[in-house]
């Protein structure tokens, strides 16, 4: 994407697949980073004009305002079902959901598991920040043990509130899925790796290889009550030990995709 203007080479600019609307996300929230990566991938693959996104309920409920392509807004947790409906009548379009951990791993557990089990040829961008952001910081299914939230004021007690759910690991056990990995947004190197995974996920769909999901560890400075920088440290030091960055399922055919 290097282009020339006068004596200046443009190294990076805001992707075309984002609209001009500033996001409502809090300063330093890495939802924006994930949006940007998806948009960059759509630009690079040249698929902005043939892609349909499905927004969730949660902080990214307004994702459809930020992406410069066709979008629908799902009921809480139902994005994979809605995406299924779209993909089954428009199989040639690129269809993806963008969901958080409350949406995907709690209320939408049924829909995500079965979309994956069917090998639905869609891409799922799953942001895991271990908390309900929009409602003000309650425990989510991925909240870490002992982590304080407004609904676990003394910390998540695993004896009564159970343990975090590792969605990438669980979904990777389903036969029909082609690409399931976990990535993180806590530093530049990992952001680049995340982008590469997002691209591979979309390429998996473009090649008709079925279900792809990138679980992305993301920050919530406001509800974690940490600065944006400290939040990235929290991902690295607290979240990654519970949610390891790894490829959990990669269809061997994916290596043959030319990207």
């Amino acid at each position: 994407m290097v282009s020339e203007t006068n004596n200046a080479t443009l190294v990076y600019e805001r992707p075309e697949s984002l609209t001009e609307m500033p996001t409502f996300y809090c300063p330093g929230c890495t939802h924006g980073t994930a949006h940007r990566l998806v948009a960059e991938v759509l630009d690079e693959m040249g698929i902005r004009e043939t892609t349909i996104g499905v927004a969730p309920v949660g902080c990214s409920v307004f994702a459809y305002n930020y992406f410069n392509h066709d979008y629908v807004e799902a009921a809480h947790g139902r994005a994979p079902a809605m995406a299924t409906g779209i993909k089954r009548v428009l199989p040639k379009k690129m269809v993806y959901t963008y969901q958080g951990d409350g949406d995907l791993a709690s209320i939408g557990m049924g829909e995500i598991m079965h979309a994956a089990a069917r090998g639905e040829n869609i891409t799922v961008i799953y942001l895991n920040n271990a908390i309900y952001g929009m409602t003000g910081g309650q425990m989510s299914p991925t909240t870490l043990p002992n982590m304080k939230t407004t609904s676990t004021p003394l910390g998540r007690d695993v004896e009564v509130a159970g343990y975090p759910i590792r969605m990438a690991e669980i979904i990777s056990n389903l036969d029909a899925v082609s690409y399931v990995v976990r990535r993180s947004l806590h530093n530049p190197a990992n952001i680049r790796k995340t982008k590469k995974a997002v691209k591979t996920a979309f390429q998996t769909q473009a090649s008709g290889m079925g279900f792809s999901m990138v679980e992305i560890l993301s920050s919530c400075p406001t509800n974690w009550k940490l600065s944006p920088s400290k939040s990235l440290e929290f991902i690295e030091e607290q979240m990654i030990p519970v949610y390891p960055i790894a490829d959990f399922k990669v269809n061997p055919e994916i290596k043959n995709i030319k990207g």
Binding site: E4, N6, N7, A8, T9, L10, V11, Y12, E13, R14, P15, L18, P22, T23, Y25, G28, C29, T30, H31, G32, T33, H35, R36, A39, N187, P188, I191, R192
Partner: peptide, 25 residues
């Protein structure tokens, strides 16, 4: 012009330029 700032920017707020090596490219 390494663009690492743009890589970490959650709001796609940064545009990055590098001085062109004009003639060669």
């Amino acid at each position: 012009g390494c663009a690492i700032c743009a890589v970490v920017c959650p709001d796609a707020a940064l545009t990055v330029y590098r001085e062109a090596k004009v003639k060669k490219t």
